[in-house]
Amino acid sequence: MSVVVRTIARLLLPWVLAFGGYVIMHGHLTPGGGFQGGAVVASAVALVVIAFGAEGLKGQKNLFSFLEDLGAIAFVALAFLGIGSTFFRNVLAGGGGLFGTPVPFGPNPGWLNTGGTLPLMNWAVGLKVLAGLGSVVLLLALFGGKEDG
């Protein structure tokens, strides 16, 4: 693409990343969450692919698959955290501690350190989704490329 698109893509990249992080991190307070934020960040990958070409990201395929497995394992591990009572039990919520600040009922401005395992799961799913969707775009873009048979 032309210099205009490349420059704008460059400029937009921190915005997209910060906004995707915001969407993931505030998933339990505002609309959004792991999937949506992951999709936003994955579209950053798509942006880089379209603006700078897929060849530059060729070496990152392994990284993406690693991150995806990591996210999936983290998600299952967080689900296993509650197996003392049951699988998927939200053991951290409401009990004090880092993510366990209790929330009163009714409209409120929201605090980041609530929600028990939910923010952590958001992160795990976000990691997984961004790596997964990013690598889908990357794989489709790289298929049939120059060296590829």
Partner: peptide, 20 residues
């Protein structure tokens, strides 16, 4: 405002890309 900034950044660029 942030939405506005994004619009101002992306809209002319998208048009330029389409024209090109």
């Amino acid at each position: 405002l942030i939405a506005l900034v994004f619009l101002l950044l992306t809209n002319p660029t998208g048009s330029h890309a389409l024209a090109r």
